[in-house]
């Protein structure tokens, strides 16, 4: 009777031990797995200034498409490391850079220079030249990039793809 009781206790302890060890080993193995899954949330992307052209290559009043490299491109990113923005020279020393992503669902907006409007091909979003919504479903104005002039070069600060949230 006593021996059975001891055996039962021993069995119960060994069951707990084996389940516990299995759980610990799974948890330890899970650390690198989860770090791969959540890597994009863990990694901090730097914000860098990228040159997009000499100041004189932009005429006052014109809006031009400029392309630049993302902040932290991987060697295997190829052409996907590129970003684009619509850059306008408002005055001699003033530039504005608009994101090329529609705030509705991120599609690429295009500048129609004669109409002075940004238009989105996906769902018909339209923006005025200052980026405010003119028509269609976009919930907010076009997002702007930070711009500066540095040693006669126009520079744009890299930024994430603008993601519109539910309250926009």
């Amino acid at each position: 009777m006593n021996e059975n009781k001891i055996n039962e206790k021993r069995r119960s302890f060994l069951v707990k031990l084996s389940v516990g060890l299995a759980a610990i080993s799974a948890a330890i193995a899970g650390v690198p797995v989860l770090s791969a899954v959540f890597a994009p949330l863990i990694k901090k992307t730097p914000k860098l200034w990228r040159q997009v052209g000499l100041v004189d290559t932009f005429n006052v009043g014109d809006t031009k498409l400029v392309t630049f490299e993302n902040a932290d491109p991987e060697n295997w990113a190829g052409v996907t490391a590129h970003s684009a923005a619509w850059l306008r020279r408002d005055a001699e020393n003033k530039f504005t850079a608009f994101s090329a992503n529609c705030t509705h669902l991120g599609c690429p907006v295009r500048w129609e220079s004669d109409a002075e409007l940004f238009m989105c091909p996906c769902h018909g979003g339209v923006y005025y030249k200052d980026g405010t919504v003119a028509a269609g479903p976009p919930p907010k104005a076009l997002v702007q990039y930070a711009v500066r002039i540095n040693k006669n070069q126009v520079e744009i600060q890299t930024a994430p793809i603008p993601i519109t949230n539910i309250t926009a």
């Binding site: 994009p40 949330l41 993302n70 902040a71 060697n75 990113a77 190829g78 490391a81 509705h104 994430p160």
Partner: peptide, 25 residues
Amino acid sequence: EQLGRVPFIGKWLARLLLGGDTIGG
């Protein structure tokens, strides 16, 4: 962008989908 509309965690979900802040490697 659609995932971005999820309350509170939308931006995280968008980053998890794309593998970062932007399209890339």
